[in-house]
Simulated assay, not measured.
Amino acid sequence: MEFTDTLVMGTPLWMWGIFMAIVVILLALDLGLFHRRPARSGSRKASSSAPFTITIGLAFGAWVWVYAGPTSGKEYLTGFLVEKTLSMDNIFVMSLIFTYFGIPRLYQHRVLFYGILGVIVLRGIVIGIGAWLVASFHWVLYIFALLLIFTGIKMLLPGDDEPDIKDNPALKLMRRFLRITPKLREQRFFVREPDTKTGAIVTWVTPLFVAMILIEIVDVIFALDSIPAIFAITTDTFVVYTSNIFAILGLRALYFALAAVIDRFVYLKPALAMILVFIGSKIFVADLAGWEKFPSTVSLSVTVALIAGGILYSLWRTQRDPADTQRDDKVQDAKTGDL
């Protein structure tokens, strides 16, 4: 057996190598080619790259389908779509964080880029722990399933309040132990400035750095939903990790593409709630029916139908009169000017 055929978590090393090479190339292009310098066109470039990153993620799923088989391909696509849909909540919270700190779109790319780098590492750690738990204790899957059902039902109930950034415990902790500049220092995370009490030159962190840390924490919280969801779809570690990472790689571009219109997708959240309930329930259904595994074709079909239904119904119910849209844009511009 050649070295490249060595199995790593059940998958040949050469497949992991192809995946990592694509990720490195995408990150290098993002940082080195498209955003070498901050520019006002940066957010437009990012939003226009959203279809590109989604296409790469889907193309990788097609490759998995060919080389690992239809079942793995369907499981990858299901996991990719579920993670993308869960990302809509991430986008909403990211928008709140940027608004709270008054971070202009000019500098948001820097926060999201380095934030996503951290997310890739954190997701790898969490997925590794999840894979070990599932392999060592199969009953953990049932806990994941119950967690998904509970989360889905909770999302369907009224009273889901908007997150309060000001009273966030992590923010309070950072304010207590870190020197934070009152205003941005362009796109820098750290600056050397005089201490307000002693006058000595010390290191300060900027609101840009604080925003990045909060985004990392938000992702860890959201991983409590997404990781059980993907393991309820498949226990193939390669499929779990690659579908998650490709969905995350496109999160920055998706943010710039959808941040301004995220409020239009009001019925996507109930659709996502039903997806979580479905994914959690199918583990118990498979056991009751005596199946070794719930059919991947059914999982993919139901997921696609619910996501498409949520998006289309949202767009239909939130059709706006052009005059109203222009009026709202002016109000938003006024708010932005006050930051």
Rank of each mutant, 00 (worst) to 15 (best):
residue 207 P to V: 00
residue 20 M to S: 11
residue 285 V to I: 15
residue 21 A to S: 14
residue 20 M to I: 15
residue 119 V to D: 02
residue 118 G to I: 11
residue 322 P to T: 08
residue 165 I to G: 08
residue 110 R to F: 05
residue 144 F to W: 09
residue 247 A to Y: 02
residue 156 L to G: 11
residue 209 F to I: 00
residue 114 Y to T: 15
residue 150 F to P: 04
residue 186 E to S: 00
residue 29 L to V: 11
residue 97 I to M: 04
residue 315 L to R: 10
residue 163 P to D: 10
residue 148 L to C: 04
residue 144 F to V: 09
residue 272 L to R: 12
residue 5 D to H: 01
residue 111 V to L: 08
residue 152 G to N: 08
residue 317 R to H: 10
residue 274 M to F: 04
residue 178 L to V: 07
residue 160 D to F: 14
residue 158 P to M: 15
residue 21 A to T: 12
residue 88 M to D: 01
residue 114 Y to P: 12
residue 281 S to E: 01
residue 52 F to Q: 11
residue 80 F to V: 07
residue 248 I to R: 01
residue 302 V to S: 03
residue 308 A to I: 07
residue 154 K to Y: 09
residue 46 A to K: 06
residue 257 A to K: 06
residue 19 F to P: 01
residue 24 V to H: 08
residue 129 I to D: 13
residue 165 I to S: 03
residue 75 E to L: 14
residue 178 L to P: 04
residue 268 L to E: 02
residue 122 L to K: 15
residue 140 V to Y: 02
residue 167 D to F: 09
residue 181 T to W: 02
residue 159 G to I: 13
residue 324 D to Q: 09
residue 35 H to L: 10
residue 169 P to S: 03
residue 338 D to E: 07
residue 192 R to H: 03
residue 230 I to W: 12
residue 9 M to P: 00
residue 290 G to W: 01
